[in-house]
Write a protein that binds this DNA or RNA. Structure first.
Lengths: 143, 143
DNA sequence: TCAATTATTTTGAATTTCAAAACATATCAT
DNA sequence: ATGATATGTTTTGAAATTCAAAATAATTGA
């Protein structure tokens, strides 16, 4: 296996786990009682237009039953509220509280710093090549 | 936020999860009764020289108690064996069975195909730039 | 209106996680 | 060599996380 393959594999296998662990420890130190899994639920809700239980479950690739339980504990912890959709009372809309917005802000800033650290040194042309490669990687998994 | 930042962030936030989901579904379809978490335990054991409980726990950033339980279920499923270290009988050495080796082979081939898909199109010079960028990303998290 | 569909929750079982206590073995100092 | 301390693993109890399947509730369409 040549150097390129080794480095890319190392990246895929280990880097992402390392990021998750670092983020998890940052939450712990900040006294935020959330797992990374729970932060990902908050992110999903933030991304969705109408964050119903089934859309949240679909986005996170979990069952709706699992979503119910995830939202239960986030609600107990004060990071989300449930409300019924007025047009279709079967639906539950999940909303983020201001506490959740704060957590997501911190999370966004973390990602921002991380990216800055990586791309600040690059020339514009090198940036293009990097983006090309990452897009290719990303596209490979969309298929 | 410019295009480079967006793509890199997208990659970090979503690509890894997508890979895990795809790998998990591949295991399911192959009838292998393991979660990705459990595969990562097998990988850790494979990587370690002397795979004692505490080394496995350290490598995976979990407590030794959690490692005990993880190894218990992998043992029940027939993917690992325990044996006592003869020089220090406090230590438990965990060994992979041939079933585990098979799972890791499939996992390795999956990663190989993935990498091939990404780098096949690149010129050698572009490869160097890509590796540079990925190393920078990786180094940032080693600190 | 009544059956079928859609949305969510509940249930029961298995895994995963932690911290702290319990247990076993080894090492070090006296 | 023996008693204290350190090291390695398991056990315990509690909370999260996951799934599949059953139960409940509301809507839609014939």
């Amino acid at each position: 296996m040549n150097d390129a393959r080794k480095v890319i594999n190392e990246l895929l296998v280990k880097l992402f786990n390392r990021i998750l662990i670092i983020e998890h420890e940052a939450l712990k130190e900040a006294g935020i009682p959330l797992s990374m899994n729970e932060v990902h639920v908050l992110e999903a809700i933030d991304d969705l237009d109408m964050s119903t239980m089934s859309r949240i479950a679909e986005k996170l690739h979990i069952t709706v039953g699992s979503a119910t339980i995830a939202i239960d504990t986030l609600q107990k912890k004060g990071y989300v509220n449930r409300k019924r959709d007025k047009n279709d009372r079967r639906r539950v809309i999940v909303e983020l509280t201001s506490d959740a917005a704060e957590v997501l802000d911190v999370h966004d800033r973390f990602h921002d710093e991380m990216i800055t650290a990586v791309i600040d040194d690059f020339e514009l042309e090198e940036n293009d090549i990097l983006i090309d490669a990452l897009k290719k990687l990303s596209d490979y998994f969309k298929a």
